[in-house]
Structures are given as structure tokens and as C-alpha cells.
């Protein structure tokens, strides 16, 4: 796996974002640098939002904060949240799926129907509908801390499509139950836990890994979509001031929040929403690359016809050669027989 270039590139991108994020906070604190105007020969040329320049490679936002700094600080929230959500979802869905295939064989039809209904609800909308009471700041301000909210959001988003994933795993496991070696194991006296641990799980390990990667990608996209509705990771700060109310703001600098709160600037200063989305796209690409590299190292794809044939021939050749060398050995063994026997 670590020799696959695809996997390495993907891993490098993700760890760059994550490591860079922690490093940035450690070096410069968690407030990005701020600039109020750019001067050229003593004259003010540009006020915030400042377009990308050498000093500020990604420009600044409408309050003069450096966008690159914001993105670097926010990276860890978004990436870790996506990884955590997908991991939690798999952790719940895998045992459930196995249980469904093992003990609920009969009931699988209607459980499937129930989970299928989720297919008709747009994921983003569903997430927004459920997360709204958690993330939207009530009139008096939040009563819980940001980490509590993040934890609740992670759990809820993990549960969101968990039934679909569980049914998927259940169906896959049910297919494996029909395999002969499972029957053989059962005849030899293996219990259900042992069959699951020793036969079903190793068979499905690669598929589960791919499923995990897909869940991470999906989570990135849902997080970005949610931000369009001003629902940000860890809560949305709303100013209820009737006169000078600020627009809804993200509490952390996480990427989807950076995108959602600046989406209206697309035409005036396109770098503001564009770069956060680009960073999200890069992370998704990184996960895709890692998946592809992983698959290549395991070679899950059906081997090509030509290479399989070539391999068969090689084995035959080797056998023949071995046969010949064996015969030579026999011959050699036969000839010096007499001196030994003397």
C-alpha cells in the first residue's frame, strides 16, 4: 500500500493540510493576520477584500483577514470531522449489518424497505432539517460548548445514512453466507461470532475500506452543502441585533463555513468562496487517490485476461523446468549410487 504512488500522493495532500493546520496554529496562534488596506507609493490602492497578491497568496476576506491563514487554521476541523463522522458511521453500521445478515435473515426485506425510504430524501436537506435545532444559535446564545455541539453533530451526521450503509453491508454479508466454505465452517462446529470474525470480515475488508473512503467523500460534500444553508460545523453565530446585525458566521474557521458565509461575494471577489471549495475539492481528490492506490495494492480489480494467461503459462513452464531438473537430479543420484554402496 505504501508503495503505490496514488496512495502516497493522496496521503501527502491530506497530511499536509492536517499537519499544516496544527503547525500554523502552533506558530502563529489561531487568529490569522489582518490587513486593512494595501498601499502603493504612499497611496491606498485597495481595501478589503483584497485580491490575491504575492504577500497574500489567496487574498483576504471582507474584514481583511488573510484567507490562506484562515484556511490553514480551519483545515483540521473539517478534515477531522469528516474522518470522524465516516469512522463512527462504519463502526455502527458494520456490526449492525452483520447482525442483520446473521440473525434477521427473514426481516431483511422490510428493514431494507425502511432504509430505502432514505433514498428519496435529499441528504443535505435531511441533514439540515435534523441539525437545525442543534447548530442554529438561539436568541440567548448557545447553552453548550463548541465541542459538545461538534460531538452532537458528528454523532447525528454519522447516524444519518447509517441505515443505508448497514443494509448494504448486510446484503453483502448475506451473499457471503451462501458460500460453501461458510457452510463447511458451520458443519465443523464454528459459531456465528467465529464465522463473522474469521470468514466474513476478512472477505469484506477491502470493500469496507472502499466504503469508508466513499463515506468520507460524501461527508465532505454534505458539510459544504450545509454551509449554503448557514449551518456550520460547530454552530452558527447569529447576531440578533436589529440594527447592525452581522451575517451568520462560523465559529471556527472550518472550510465549509468559510465558503457558506462568502458565497454571496462570488461575482465581486470570486476568490473568497472559490478557494475554500477548491480546498475541499483537493481533500476529496486526496481521498479518491488514496482509495485508488489502496485498491491497486490489493488488486481488487479483475486481473486482465492477458496477464492471467501469461501467468498460467509461466507456471507451466516452471513446472516443466522443475520436472527436468528433478529428472537430472534423479539421474545424478542414480549414477553415483554404486560408489556409495561400496
Amino acid at each position: 500500500m505504501w508503495k503505490q504512488p496514488y496512495f502516497l500522493v493522496g496521503f501527502a495532500i491530506l497530511s499536509f493540510f492536517l499537519g499544516g493546520s496544527f503547525l500554523y496554529e502552533w506558530l502563529w496562534g489561531n487568529v490569522p493576520r489582518q490587513i486593512f488596506f494595501v498601499t502603493e507609493n504612499g497611496r491606498t490602492v485597495e481595501g478589503p477584500p483584497i485580491s490575491p497578491k504575492w504577500n497574500f497568496p489567496l487574498g483576504t476576506d471582507q474584514y481583511g483577514y488573510d484567507l490562506l491563514g484562515k484556511l490553514m487554521i480551519g483545515g483540521k476541523y473539517t478534515i477531522l470531522a469528516a474522518l470522524a463522522i465516516a469512522a463512527l458511521r462504519m463502526l455502527i453500521a458494520v456490526p449492525l449489518g452483520y447482525m442483520m445478515a446473521t440473525y434477521l435473515q427473514r426481516q431483511r426485506a422490510w428493514i431494507g424497505g425502511l432504509a430505502d425510504s432514505l433514498h428519496y430524501i435529499p441528504l443535505t436537506l435531511f441533514a439540515a432539517y435534523i441539525l437545525y435545532p442543534v447548530l442554529w444559535m438561539p436568541l440567548g446564545g448557545f447553552t453548550n460548548t463548541i465541542w459538545e455541539r461538534i460531538a452532537i453533530q458528528v454523532v447525528l451526521m454519522a447516524l444519518l445514512t447509517m441505515p443505508i450503509v448497514a443494509v448494504l453491508i448486510g446484503n453483502e454479508a448475506a451473499l457471503l453466507y451462501r458460500q460453501e466454505y461458510v457452510t463447511a465452517a458451520r458443519v465443523l462446529g464454528a459459531g456465528e461470532p467465529r464465522i463473522i470474525r474469521k470468514h466474513l470480515y476478512p472477505q469484506m475488508r477491502e470493500k469496507l475500506a472502499v466504503l469508508y473512503g466513499q463515506q468520507v467523500i460524501e461527508t465532505f460534500i454534505v458539510l459544504a452543502h450545509l454551509s449554503l444553508l448557514n449551518l456550520f460545523l460547530g454552530g452558527t453565530k447569529i447576531s440578533y441585533d436589529p440594527m447592525f446585525s452581522d451575517p451568520p458566521m462560523s465559529i471556527s474557521f472550518e472550510w465549509s463555513g468559510l465558503f457558506g458565509s462568502t458565497f454571496r461575494y462570488l461575482q465581486g471577489s470570486p476568490w473568497l468562496p472559490l478557494f475554500p471549495v477548491l480546498f475541499i475539492a483537493l481533500s476529496i481528490l486526496a481521498v479518491t487517490l488514496m482509495l485508488e492506490g489502496y485498491l491497486r495494492s490489493k488488486d481488487i480489480q479483475a486481473p486482465k485476461k492477458s496477464s492471467a494467461l501469461a501467468q498460467d503459462e509461466a507456471i507451466v513452464d516452471w513446472n516443466r523446468e522443475q520436472l527436468r531438473s528433478r529428472m537430472v537430479l534423479l539421474k545424478n543420484a542414480e549414477t553415483p549410487k554404486n560408489p556409495h554402496n561400496l
Binding site: F259, V277, A281, T288
Partner: peptide, 10 residues
């Protein structure tokens, strides 16, 4: 395959 990883927002 890599085009597919573009988010719809982008």
C-alpha cells in the same frame, strides 16, 4: 475517475 471527485458546488 478524478473528474468525479469534483464537488458539485465547484
Amino acid at each position: 475517475y478524478f473528474l468525479e471527485s469534483l464537488p458539485d458546488l465547484l
